[in-house]
């Protein structure tokens, strides 16, 4: 079960990127840009959280964690650490709290607004994505 969830949460970003591509292809540039803004906001807030959590560990660890966030591997790494009961005394919070925080930010800034946006775009362009 865990492995399935970890995989699905990681491929979530790919579906978002495909959505942006689909919007751009169909000339819905403002909607594509809104989607990009949501992903950017999510990444920016997650970078701030990484800064707060890992600042005691030094620049090297901080850069590594930032890189994980920027290349959208954060859900995978967080879930992996929780699954393996990873312990680190130098971080501010435990892996479970960190994962929940990152997931919460992702839900509130990207997934939920993205869902509303997709419903909105589909209502305005019902033929979008169909072959007809």
């Amino acid at each position: 079960m865990k492995e399935v969830v970890i995989t699905l949460t990681t491929v979530d970003t790919m579906t978002d990127i495909f959505m942006i591509y689909l919007y751009k292809e169909n000339g819905l540039h403002s909607n594509a840009n809104t989607m990009i803004a949501m992903i950017s906001l999510n990444t920016f807030i997650q970078l701030l959280i990484v800064l707060a959590v890992y600042k005691k560990k030094g620049w090297r660890a901080l850069l590594k964690e930032w890189l994980i966030t920027v290349i959208f591997l954060r859900p995978f790494v967080d879930a992996w650490r929780v699954h393996n009961k990873h312990k680190d005394s130098e971080t501010m919070i435990d892996p479970l709290a960190e994962m929940v925080m990152n997931k919460g930010i992702e839900l509130a800034t990207e997934s939920i607004p993205g869902c509303v946006l997709q419903c909105y775009v589909l209502l305005l362009n019902p033929s979008l994505g169909s072959s007809r």
Binding site: L8, T9, M99, V100, K103, G104, E106, L107, S111
Partner: peptide, 16 residues
């Protein structure tokens, strides 16, 4: 995916 993430948060908290 949103529902899955939300359920995963609740599940992880509850089974902790």
């Amino acid at each position: 995916m949103t529902g899955l993430t939300s359920a995963m948060i609740a599940y992880d908290f509850d089974t902790d």
